[in-house]
């Protein structure tokens, strides 16, 4: 794979990165949708084993950039990207990188829970099966149970593993989707507003889960809830009009942000 050609130093919070190594990074990334310049010369370093949240008003480019992290934008014909995005220092857009393979390393959880119209068991077993990750049926069963346990769902569904995943409550479905993402042993989990369709209790459970998962994964979450970003993430990036305005320790961003635009946004002063 291509080594990155360093364009410019990416903004990175020194304290957190001193403790945790870089997992993903972007250098001079530009993304266009047709004529729309959605991401403008963005550079960022995302550390491992921490939660980084992306916040910003609608249309600021945070979801576009999140999708670029596992090449979900590839499927949109009008979408063009320049610059480098790396995973463990390797360019994810290299010609030799298979996007399907990439997505098993960089999993994604969406806004609305989207279980397959299959049983709970099959939802989780699907990924390991297509990626050929398990040697036997017992192996596969173990992995399904383990993933459901990690997603904090196993106890609630252990007696009905073969019933449809779509029969679960919204919060349970979302945890099922997280179990499905975990089942293929990803290194990075991307979450695009994972709680916006959930009630406060289901939200609390997902947030608690995110906090546990960060021990083992690099997590990036896009959220419209500033309180959620403040609660679950160690790092926060503020996007505005396609640029990364500020990226730093969450504690700092929500008490004393450096940039007046961040200040205006998080205090609810954007017109």
């Amino acid at each position: 794979m291509n080594q990155i050609s360093s364009v410019q130093p990416a903004p990175a919070p020194v304290r957190i990165l001193a403790e945790r190594p870089e997992k993903m990074a972007a250098r001079g990334v530009n993304i266009h949708y047709g004529d729309k310049h959605a991401i403008k010369d963005l550079s960022i370093t995302i550390p491992d084993r921490a939660v980084s949240s992306f916040i910003g008003p609608s249309g600021c480019g945070k979801s576009t950039f999140l999708r670029a992290l596992n090449r979900m934008n590839d499927t949109i014909p009008s979408c063009r990207m320049t610059g480098d995005i790396t995973l463990d220092g390797r360019n994810i857009n290299g010609r030799d990188v298979d996007p399907v393979q990439l997505r098993s390393h960089v999993g994604m959880v969406f806004q609305k829970p989207n279980p397959f119209p299959k049983s709970i068991f099959e939802n989780v077993a699907y990924g390991p099966r297509i990626h050929g990750l398990t040697a036997s049926t017992t192996d596969l069963e173990e992995r399904v149970v383990e993933s459901l346990k990690k997603a904090g769902l196993f106890e609630e569904v252990k007696d009905r593993l073969h019933q449809p995943g779509t029969g679960l409550s919204g919060g349970q479905q979302q945890r099922l989707c997280i179990a499905r993402a975990i089942a293929v042993n990803p290194e990075v989990i991307l979450m695009d507003e994972p709680c916006s369709a959930l009630d406060p209790i289901a939200t609390a459970k997902i947030e608690e889960l995110i906090d546990e998962l960060r021990q083992n994964y690099c997590i990036v979450i896009v959220t419209h809830s500033m309180q959620q970003a403040a609660r679950v993430s160690q790092l926060t990036a503020f996007f505005h009009l396609g640029t990364l305005v500020e990226f730093g320790d969450t504690d700092k961003i929500f008490t004393a942000p450096r940039d007046p635009r961040t200040q205006d946004y998080i205090t609810g002063r954007f017109g």
């Binding site: 500033m226 309180q227 403040a230 929500f254 008490t255 004393a256 942000p257 961040t262 200040q263 998080i266 205090t267 609810g268």
Partner: peptide, 10 residues
């Protein structure tokens, strides 16, 4: 009521 942030919180 407001869950204040940044300068508002201060």
């Amino acid at each position: 009521k407001r869950q204040p942030m940044a300068r508002d919180l201060r």
